[in-house]
């Protein structure tokens, strides 16, 4: 398995507050790594450090063999190959669903419009939104917006997908639609990092579970095994309360 991402001793501080305290992690192609743990333990910040939305105060990040940290052009290169899905979708409100998906391939990757449009339409089929292609974000439900956001991330043919609590801002009845799409992506063999509170999804779909607490990785391993009985007390307690 080829290694895609390597984090080594990552440290993130906001002023005097430490958010990430020496995170080391290697991710290979095809892995689906689910990050779980109490709120405010730095899971989302970790994803945001990887594509440079947050700067880091220590440690190393390398993506596909290239060092990333502190180098603007390397950060942009990473961003072109990493798709990100946000908790609040962050669709562009002035563009239709189709235009949202097509913007970056055309503007950033300089691809031909016709090619991009064909690919985008296929992606709308995949996320089951072919009928909403010309809708504006304000006209769509949260679940629909998040699926457009997934199509938007996929349209640049990313090597890695990062999901930052993709279902946390959704109405309960639309969560299922988004998780179904994510399941489909997992079956295709995509490499995914998923910050989530959906423990069942993590256990079913994830190839690895990373439990984080108090700015560190406390335990990681096979998701099913961890849900059945984690090694550490903290993980056991957290997974027990959430699951039960």
């Amino acid at each position: 398995m080829t290694e895609i991402l390597a984090l080594d001793g990552l440290v993130k501080r906001f002023g005097s507050r430490t958010i990430l305290d020496g995170i080391s992690l290697n991710v290979s192609a095809g892995e689906i790594v689910c990050f779980v743990g109490p709120s405010g333990t730095g899971k989302s910040t970790l994803l945001r450090c990887i594509n440079g939305l947050e700067d880091i105060q220590g440690g190393r990040i390398s993506f596909e063999g290239q060092a990333v940290q502190g180098n603007p052009s390397a950060i942009r290169a990473v961003r072109k190959r990493v798709g990100m899905i946000f908790q609040h979708f962050n669709l562009y409100p002035h563009l239709t669903a189709l235009q949202n998906v097509m913007l970056a391939p055309v503007v950033v990757h300089k691809e031909a419009k016709a090619e991009v449009e064909a690919r985008a339409r296929a992606l709308f089929d995949k996320v089951r939104l072919a009928h909403r292609i010309n809708a504006y974000p304000a006209e769509m439900s949260g679940g629909e917006q998040q699926r457009v956001a997934i199509a938007r991330a996929l349209c640049t043919n990313p090597h890695l997908l990062m999901f930052d609590e993709p279902t946390s801002a959704l109405d309960p009845e639309t969560v299922g639609d988004v998780l179904t799409v994510m399941r489909d992506l997992a079956l295709e063999g995509r490499t995914m990092l998923v910050v989530t509170h959906e423990i069942r999804f993590a256990a079913d779909v994830g190839t690895r579970m990373v439990f984080m607490d108090q700015c560190r990785i406390v335990e990681q391993g096979d998701p099913r095994a961890m849900v059945a009985g984690a090694q550490t007390e903290r993980a056991r307690k957290f997974l027990g309360t959430i699951h039960g």
């Binding site: 440079g52 609040h88 970056a104």
Partner: peptide, 11 residues
């Protein structure tokens, strides 16, 4: 979030 989404797409 709009700035972040656009940046994360490599713009």
């Amino acid at each position: 979030g709009q700035f972040e989404a656009a940046q994360s797409q490599g713009m």
